[in-house]
Design a protein around this nucleic acid. Structure first.
Length: 605
DNA sequence: AAAAAAC
């Protein structure tokens, strides 16, 4: 326990002001490009274009703002970016450093050093050529000047062509850790490769559990491929056709194991009709050669369901895909998604396809599933302590007594001005999200709500406004718990108790990113009692004080399960709910307890 | 039990 604490605190406390700044720009760039009325400045000028309101300006008003660097032991030599172009920074602040553990068959890949050039200078199988040079240039434009720990380690693995499972904390830089090496391995954009086999179809596939995360990752890709002709798309209804068109002809899918040859031909005819109706080129004029335009998609970012559908109906082939990345992979390999994800993985039939799996949490049961898809030469990268919360978040638990007590507590925070913005409020259901949203409007705050029941464009809009600072508080469901990078978020409030440890870790990981401080407050009531202990253990492992009685609380037994989802926000908690023992719940609680035990056991990893 | 993810 103590060792875990030390390990964690040794890690999270370094700062890289340059890096934060460029991260902001990175995402600002995406927003601005899409912004309607916004002055369409160059993406790099975003910081100026969308000046942060004071409340969002982390470095301006936070007491812990590193006007001088936080003093932590320096063990990395990532000082190469000290002379960055960033105006307001003569101080060098190092990125978060944590212990990184690689396991796998020998020889283990050598970690890259923190300089960007280590991405392209490697004499790996890839063709360095001009691709590397222009990538470096693009990174500098995006104000990315050095690699972080996870990016060095994962970069080494992916560049060597190894399949990889990576468990790294929230906000530690996982997205870039797979995007950058993938770009290097792809070498040149499909546009420059149109005559070659390699440039066709979906060249790299990133699979994520939510639409919103897909959009965000697309923004990252855009930011690091600025000025080049890389073709990256999010698979949506709108882009579906273009994505199918990029797929090599059906002749290819015939070679696949599960292909349905006869129907392919008919599908082809069908597609052709669709083509013409949308005024596209006659891509399928030559069915057997397929996609004569030769325009592939370099990086496709997709959610499982739509892609699964396209694969199952043979409208798209992943037979030429060389890279498949599962982000939030424990979620994607959970029973909810597995039926869709498995066929997609199966569809990647190229003999050289590289598979990689990423998450901040990785229950061992799920990791076993991931391993089944990985070659013997696979590498496991663990940054810090697996399945632990980031230590940069100040976590606390707050007893609110009753349902109405929650709203009271939140209102109190707001009215006393003690709730720093921007903040993120998690609730358990769509209904409760809408209801809390309505209540908060009455408080006169700039608030919006995001959940799966809202249209995609509304979601995009709300998230954009939140990033821009036009929205101070976002009421959300689990949909935004994972992966979303709101760099400025100061507080996460778990208005409703998270249902799993994983959920808790991901939710509070929306703040305290990249070594920055953050705060997480979790409300709980009597009915959350059984689950409290598990979460309390997480707090303690990451160094946050927890009253002893919480850890002593009895293990979850057959407590009545509150139907929280249907409980109105305003109403007082109704006593005497269902008394029945929900077997499902028992099972899940056991998993939670198991997971936390395992976490403790594996502290020395 | 809810959420998410296609039509």
């Amino acid at each position: 326990m103590a060792s875990a604490f030390n390990l964690l605190t040794a890690g999270g406390a370094k700062f890289d002001k340059n890096r934060f700044q460029r991260d902001f720009e990175l995402f600002g760039g995406k927003k601005d490009r899409k912004g309607k009325g916004k002055a369409s400045t160059k993406p790099t000028n975003l910081h100026n274009a969308t000046t942060l309101p004071h409340s969002l300006d982390f470095f301006g008003d936070h007491p812990a703002a590193p006007s001088k660097p936080v003093q932590v032991e320096v063990e990395s030599d990532s000082d190469s970016d000290a002379s960055s172009s960033s105006s307001s920074s003569s101080v060098h602040i190092a990125p978060p450093t944590q212990k990184i553990t690689l396991t796998g068959s020998d020889p283990l890949p050598k970690s890259l050093d923190t300089s960007l050039s280590s991405l392209t200078s490697l004499d790996s199988a890839s063709t360095p050529s001009r691709g590397g040079e222009t990538l470096l240039k693009a990174l500098k434009t995006a104000n990315i000047n050095s690699l972080w720990g996870v990016q060095c380690a994962v970069g080494g693995c992916l560049l060597e062509g190894r399949d990889t499972i990576c468990v790294a904390p929230t906000g530690s830089g996982k997205t870039l850790s797979y995007i950058l090496p993938t770009l290097v391995k792809l070498g040149d954009p499909s546009r420059s490769l149109k005559e070659t086999e390699e440039g066709k179809g979906v060249r790299a596939l990133v699979l994520v559990p939510t639409h919103d995360l897909a959009i965000q990752i697309h923004g990252v890709v855009n930011a690091v491929t600025r000025g080049r002709s890389w073709r990256s798309l999010v698979l949506t209804k709108a882009t579906e056709k273009a994505v199918c068109d990029s797929s090599p002809g059906p002749s290819r899918s015939k070679q696949n194991a599960d292909g349905q040859p006869e129907e392919d031909v008919e599908d082809d005819e069908q597609s052709e009709d669709d083509e013409e109706s949308t005024g596209s080129v006659d891509e399928f004029a030559q069915p057997k050669s397929g996609n004569p335009s030769g325009l592939g998609i370099d990086i496709l970012i997709a959610t499982p369901e739509r892609l699964h559908h396209l694969v199952e109906t043979s409208r798209i082939s992943l037979a030429s895909t060389r890279h498949i990345i599962l982000d939030e992979s424990d979620r994607l390999l959970s029973p909810d998604f597995l039926p869709q994800v498995e066929p997609i993985l199966k569809g990647c039939t190229h003999q050289d396809v590289q598979k990689s799996f990423f998450s901040a949490t990785m229950p061992s049961g799920v990791e076993e599933i991931a391993k089944k898809w990985i070659k013997d030469e696979g590498v496991r990268v663990v940054v810090g302590v697996k399945d632990s919360a980031v230590t940069t978040v100040d976590q606390s638990l707050l007893y609110t007594g009753s349902e109405s007590g929650k709203l009271l507590a939140l209102r109190n925070l707001i009215s006393t001005g003690s709730l720093p913005y921007p903040s993120l409020i998690f609730v358990q259901s769509i209904e409760r999200a809408d209801e809390l949203y309505k209540n908060l409007i009455l408080e006169g705050i700039k608030v919006d709500v995001v959940h799966g029941g809202r249209g995609k464009s509304k979601r995009d809009e709300a998230i954009k406004n939140f990033r821009l600072g036009h929205v101070w508080m976002l009421v959300v469901t689990e949909v935004l718990a994972r992966g979303m990078d709101f760099r400025g978020v100061k507080v996460v409030i778990n208005y409703d108790f998270p249902q799993t440890v994983q959920s808790y870790i991901h939710r509070i990981g929306r703040t305290g990113r990249a070594g920055r401080p953050g705060k997480a407050i979790t409300y709980f009531n009597v009915e959350d009692g059984p689950y409290l202990r598990t979460i309390a253990n997480v707090l303690r492992s990451s160094g946050c004080p927890v009253p002893d009685y919480m850890l002593d609380m009895r293990k979850p037994t057959k407590d009545q399960k509150r139907n929280l989802a249907k409980a109105p926000i305003k109403r007082k908690a109704v006593g005497g709910g269902g008394r029945d023992v929900a077997r499902e719940d028992g099972r899940k609680r056991k998993q939670m307890v198991e997971a936390s035990k395992k976490r403790k056991v594996k502290l020395d990893e």
